[in-house]
């Protein structure tokens, strides 16, 4: 068996037996799916929403693409679009958690030293850790997006509204932005945990990088930033540059001797 594969399988066998990591990996996507789906379910319910429908600001009804929607449909479409980027928290949080626990945990349990004494290159070790962290991140992100998309067929009866929600910017976020964010979170997680010895500290330090991205996601939810094909592509371009820079940093930081000794 290839050494990187061995490392990845070992990583998963170990890290998924850690309750905290398991909770994050299972619960986080569930929450990220359930919140928008429940909101849309409520938002699309005539009886629950009847009082509010009269008060919908005209600005909402006049949004591009909203022509011909009933007020209820417009309401639902508006809500749904705010959640367009919500699930992107999944590819950010999961790789970060796995990466920090897999490296810092390994340092804390002293299992890193025998591993570094084995005939593996630092790149193999880095690749193993990175794929072990990024893999579940992207898989859960895509699964979340898929489940969300399918759930829309249940809670959003109008095909016109569904088309508005599963639009091009949404697809770009699933297919392009989510993988790029996974790489971002993984490289940040790896870099940070190469220098600290507490997984929680590593996660918090990682958050310093993650928070601006989260900020953008929430700004979009709040309607401060418009998310359309143009901004989606700009974000993707920025992320590519950030990912490359961070990958460079991670490789530089991830040296045998430093990860072994520079953390006490």
């Amino acid at each position: 068996m290839n050494k990187i594969t061995t490392l990845i399988l070992k990583e998963w066998a170990d890290v998924f037996r850690n309750r905290y990591v398991l909770y994050i990996v299972v619960l986080m996507p569930l929450i990220m799916i359930l919140i928008p789906v429940i909101m849309l379910g409520v938002g699309g319910n005539q009886d629950l929403m009847s009082n509010d429908l009269d008060e919908i600001p005209p600005a909402i009804l006049e949004q591009p693409g909203f022509e011909g929607l009933t007020p209820l449909e417009a309401m639902q479409a508006f809500m749904g679009m705010q959640f367009n980027l919500f699930f992107l928290i999944v590819p950010l949080a999961i790789p970060m958690t796995i990466a920090t626990y897999s490296i810092v945990g390994e340092k804390r349990d002293r299992s890193l030293e025998p591993l570094l004494a084995a005939p593996i290159t630092t790149s193999q070790l880095l690749a193993g850790k990175a794929i072990a962290a990024a893999g579940p991140g992207i898989i859960t992100a895509w699964l979340s997006a898929l489940v969300y998309g399918l759930a829309l067929f249940v809670v959003v009866p109008s095909p016109a509204v569904r088309a508005l929600l599963l639009n091009a910017p949404f697809l770009i976020s699933v297919l392009v932005i989510a993988p790029l964010l996974t790489v971002l979170a993984t490289t940040v997680g790896l870099s940070v945990s190469s220098r600290v010895n507490d997984p929680r500290v590593a996660e918090q330090l990682g958050m310093i990088v993650i928070v601006p991205v989260l900020g953008l996601i929430f700004a979009q939810i709040a309607g401060v930033v418009a998310y359309n094909v143009q901004t989606a592509l700009i974000s993707a371009a920025v992320l590519v540059v950030a990912d490359l820079a961070l990958l460079y940093v991670a490789v530089r930081l991830f040296q045998r001797e430093t990860i072994l000794t520079r953390w006490k």
């Binding site: 070992k10 066998a13 170990d14 037996r17 349990d109 002293r110 299992s111 025998p114």
Partner: peptide, 12 residues
């Protein structure tokens, strides 16, 4: 190498 602390994967 037998390292100073065994450093096994306790959960495995």
């Amino acid at each position: 190498v037998l390292t100073e602390t065994p450093g096994m994967y306790d959960r495995l």
